[in-house]
Amino acid sequence: MSHGAPPADTVDAPFWAGLAGGVLRIQRCAGCARWSWPPQWRCGACGSWEMEWPEVPMEGIVHALSWTRHPFSPGMVDKIPYPVLLVALPDAGGARLLGLLDGPAEGLAIGSRVTGFPQETPDHTALRWQLAR
C-alpha cells in the first residue's frame, strides 16, 4: 500500500518523525499548555512561538466512522470495503486523527475504544488502529 511519503519540512513533520520512531506525538503550546491540533507555527491563543511535541498514548475513541465501498484510492482497491476512522485522543485534549482500522471490525461503532500501533509501509510509518480489548 503506497500513498507517497509525507513531506519532511512542514509544521507537522514531528508527527511523522515520531511515528517513524514508534511514538505518537501531538503538538502542545509551551506558553499556555493548550493542545494545538492541527499543529501551528504560532499559538494563536497566547501568541507563543514555542510549541512542543509530547508523547501521547495511542489510545482513542471513535468520533466518526464511515465504510468506504468504492475504490477511491488506487492503493486501497484490495481493501474494499474498509472503515475510515476519526479517532479522538482523550490524552491530547480530544485532538482527532484520521486513520484506518487494521484488525477485526466486529462491534466497531462511534464511541468504540481503539488502540493504535505504528505500521511500516513502503513510504512511511503509518498509525493504524484496532478495537481495544
Binding site: H3, P6, W16, F72, G75, L98, L100, A126
Partner: peptide
C-alpha cells in the same frame, strides 16, 4: 494533505461520509 491520503482517504465523498455518519449519530 498526507493526513488524508496516507489513511486511505482521497475523495471528498469519504470526508462527507464521516461527517454525515456523525450527524446521523
Amino acid at each position: 494533505g498526507p493526513h488524508y491520503t496516507l489513511h486511505g482517504i482521497s475523495s471528498p465523498a469519504q470526508i462527507c461520509g464521516l461527517k454525515t455518519e456523525r450527524l446521523i449519530h
